[in-house]
């Protein structure tokens, strides 16, 4: 599959939503995209730029594939990421950059990759060694994924999440699932260039709620909406 490319979308008269040339299918995040938007791969995404010290970006367009297998299975061993951790692993050998493998459950791994790479990840997970039963499910469309970045991120998150976010309990590379503002949420501490950053994902239909709640929680800390960062694509 080719690298996802960014293209300008056209907008039909009287319709604020972009369309792709030739009526090709256009995928949308469950979260409203702050303008300006563009189409990346098959997805309509925001390309908003912000210099705010605390920012929230919608990453729902990223590929997300879930592997279920016994923790003692060969496949699990091949991934090498235990429950509760998140590491970059080259699951898809042909990709230039590794994918983020999240140990999201005792027998569950969530692999996050660039836009439109779910089929490759899917195939790579099915091809992991071993005969143990396993289940590989593409949840790209089933999850809303956002990234909250900034030094104030732990304090903002602490207004809506009961988890101990201090360094000694939730260091970079830690993954867990808990309640965030009343919704079961996967939380991954994944710092960006030394700045504290969290990935949060929930089942898709709660995405807008999660996004709105984080924006409100961060309001006094000066949060701003960011577009899909180039390096995530």
């Amino acid at each position: 599959m080719p690298e996802a490319t960014t293209q300008a979308a056209t907008t039909a008269p009287g319709d604020a939503r972009p369309r792709l040339p030739g009526g090709a299918p256009l995928a949308r995040s469950p979260i409203r995209q702050p303008p300006p938007t563009a189409v990346v791969g098959h997805w309509e995404v925001s390309r908003r730029h912000t210099n705010a010290a605390l920012r929230l970006a919608d990453l729902s367009a990223l590929a997300k594939v879930v592997l279920r297998a016994a923790p003692e299975s060969e496949a699990a061993g091949a991934l090498g990421v235990p429950f509760g951790a998140a590491r970059r692993v080259n699951v898809v050998a042909t990709r230039p950059a590794p994918q983020l493998v999240v140990g999201s459950g005792p027998d569950e791994w969530t692999v996050l990759g660039p836009v439109d790479t779910q089929a490759e990840i899917d195939a790579a997970l099915l091809a992991l060694p071993g005969e143990h039963p396993r289940s590989v499910v593409d949840l790209t469309h089933g999850r809303a994924l956002v990234r909250l970045t900034g030094a104030a991120a732990p304090a903002v998150l602490a207004t809506i999440c009961a988890i101990d976010l201090r360094e000694r309990s939730t260091p970079n590379g830690k993954a867990l699932r808990s309640l965030v503002a009343g919704v079961a949420t996967d939380l991954v501490r994944d710092d960006v260039e030394g700045t504290c950053s969290y990935l949060l994902h929930v089942e898709r239909s709660s995405g807008q709620y999660l996004y709105d709640t984080l924006m409100e929680a961060g309001a006094t800390a000066g949060i701003d909406a960011a577009g899909l960062p180039e390096k995530e694509i």
């Binding site: 879930v66 039963p133 396993r134 289940s135 949840l139 469309h141 999850r143 089942e203």
Partner: peptide, 10 residues
């Protein structure tokens, strides 16, 4: 058997 909810994936 592995079960995965797909309610909002579709």
């Amino acid at each position: 058997v592995y079960v995965t909810p797909l309610t909002t994936a579709y």
